[in-house]
């Protein structure tokens, strides 16, 4: 009987669902995370605007870390294999996830992408999300860490304009710092704005062109790797390490 509006209609029932609308995505993300956990693979969800420098970060990471660790990339884009081709040229195995009109990756797209990539022997899997500062933030993919690339050319106020994305970030890479001398942009102001919206502010200023900050980025990744190894050794159920 309907009690919600008080009409008393015996053919109306109120049903408390109380389920996250992304519960289906969350289930597949847990499945992905269990895979990564079982094979001791660190999975990083790399997000940012189109042109923020995500692919350049991966190329620089290949140069800095590729000799001692196995790296792989799932590159999400609406169209083309350009990003996967670029990171392959840098020596990283990669597959594209072509989303068509979808503005984000979801856990199922990543799961299907894993079927095409020999990921089990990797130390690090980078999931390069679709360039977008809005939609990708709300989809769990099974990653250990969310990393957001923010280029200095995007301006100082992007953290304030897109708070959800930066709120979810475990680390923000402020990219293209070699261009600062050409711009009327304050790195301090970017850091200040990130500190407002990030619950645990963590950021590194880098330039894929000059290599500035790349060592710190690699050390950060290796720190995540050690946390992942410790989590695997503890043989508990899979959970994000951050």
């Amino acid at each position: 009987m309907c009690v919600a509006c008080g009409c008393g209609d015996p053919n109306i029932v109120s049903v408390d669902v109380h389920e996250r609308i992304l519960a289906g995505n969350d289930r597949v993300a847990r499945h992905n995370r269990e895979h990564f956990h079982d094979h001791n693979v660190v999975a990083v969800n790399l997000m940012g605007s189109p042109g923020a420098g995500k692919t350049a970060i991966l190329e620089a990471t290949a140069r800095a870390l590729g000799r001692k660790s196995h790296l792989g990339v799932l590159a999400g884009d609406l169209a083309t294999d350009n990003d996967a081709n670029r990171v392959r040229a840098a020596g990283i195995i990669a597959e594209s996830i072509t989303t068509g009109s979808a503005c984000h990756l979801d856990a199922d797209m990543v799961h299907k992408g894993l079927h095409r990539l020999p990921w089990r022997t990797l130390d690090y899997l980078f999931i390069e999300n679709v360039g977008n500062l809005v939609c990708p933030a709300i989809y769990d993919l099974g990653q250990d860490a969310n990393v957001v690339a923010l280029s200095v050319t995007e301006g100082e106020d992007k953290p304030l304009k897109y708070p959800t994305m930066f709120h979810k970030a475990d680390l923000v890479l402020v990219t293209k710092t070699d261009l600062l001398r050409h711009l009327d942009v304050s790195l301090d102001r970017i850091v200040e704005n990130l500190s407002i919206v990030m619950p645990r502010p963590a950021m590194l200023a880098i330039s894929a062109t000059t290599g500035a900050g790349i060592d710190q980025w690699v050390r950060w990744l290796e720190g995540i790797g050690r946390l992942r190894s410790a989590a695997c050794a503890a043989s508990g159920h899979a959970g994000a390490v951050l």
């Binding site: 919600a4 053919n11 109306i12 109120s14 049903v15 109380h18 389920e19 996250r20 609308i21 709300i138």
Partner: peptide
């Protein structure tokens, strides 16, 4: 940051 299907009113025969 929740997004939850909270409640439904369903018509049953």
């Amino acid at each position: 940051d929740e997004l939850v299907l909270d409640q439904l009113e369903l018509e049953v025969p």
